[in-house]
Design a protein around this nucleic acid. Sequence first.
DNA 1: GATGCGCAGATTGTTTGACAATCCAAGCGA
DNA 2: TCGCTTGGATTGTCAAACAATCTGCGCATC
Lengths: 204, 204
Amino acid sequence: MNATVQHALRDAILGRDLPPGASVTETAVASRYGIARQTARLAIERLVADGLLRRAPHQAARVPELDAQDIRDVFDSRAVVEQAAIERLAQAGSIPAEALAAHREPRALAEDAPFARIDATFHRALVAGQPNARLARMHELLMGEIELCIAQVQAGRVLLPAEIGAQHQAILDAVTAGDAALAGRLAREHVHGARDRLLNQTTH
Amino acid sequence: MNATVQHALRDAILGRDLPPGASVTETAVASRYGIARQTARLAIERLVADGLLRRAPHQAARVPELDAQDIRDVFDSRAVVEQAAIERLAQAGSIPAEALAAHREPRALAEDAPFARIDATFHRALVAGQPNARLARMHELLMGEIELCIAQVQAGRVLLPAEIGAQHQAILDAVTAGDAALAGRLAREHVHGARDRLLNQTTH
DNA sequence: GATGCGCAGATTGTTTGACAATCCAAGCGA
DNA sequence: TCGCTTGGATTGTCAAACAATCTGCGCATC
């Protein structure tokens, strides 16, 4: 029961149903989803751990408002982790099935899902398929805020599926070729490109 | 009240009072520290998030037994994050006061504390002093398991304060000199050295 | 008019007690 | 020997309550 509420809250935040700056109180969540306050509290705490909410002691949780510095921080950290992850994936040499599915059939996954969601699925699957569980855990820690960044900048229009798909293809090729250095470099540049596109959107 | 219990539990785990494999039930923690089960549950969940406990749904939490592969995973991830963090610290060019304190006065910090604890304090302070908050958060996520690794291998004897102190000094020198590439390389090698010493200890 | 104080409301932090859901191991029967 | 049931242990969730803390507003004072 808790996992479903957590998922619903997550969607509400990423879907801007709860706009940045909105306060999310335990009682509000409890009554909204018909659960006990303790359970709502737990869901909120998990989302705080995921970076999708923030809160100070004795204050209501709030949807964070991410500024340009936050975007730089999050994407730079992601670049570090994802480069390392892709390098390890290339050393292993095999591409996870879920990543291939997200890469090949973006339409089939979810017609209504924005491309940003599919892109996140692809990257998550790539990192999850690499052997180091801690790297995957750290990556997961970042992806919540990453999706929040993209949602807040409303950058769905900025992400060009064709261009990004080509970059993904290049990364996959380097991985299958076992060229860890190249794959890692491509992954880092890919993330940095996303960061710069988002930053352009915000300052503009 | 909860923070103190969490700290006591943490010490019990790292001090091998709770040996690897020991099960930590909510009721046991509650009665041991005289708190409600809900509060004990919360403390356990936080420690699970820190990597100091593991648990599956509807099962008691357990102190993880880390094998050689875990040590490789944790330290390799740490090397990735810490190299990036030290590079950013060198670009900023200033060394956090807490890091200097831990480096210069290991005795003064805590006479009874093992050197491993002081070493962890030093590294935590270095990474926390660097401007990227997400990198620091990921590092913190790893340090729990790092300390657990060291405690389980009982590697207090293996960590030579003089040698490690010299390596720390070299890193600090590179940071103050603003040589990000050198500082990052030294940090990575420093972490890899710790990893190899621990691995030698386990297989032996 | 500006400043500081205090009070009431809102919210979280923690406790206690209870019950359902689930897992695990021991015992039992085929 | 193998599979099943059953009972105990443990977690997951709910409900109600109270203390601790923060926030904003009104009010007195300067």
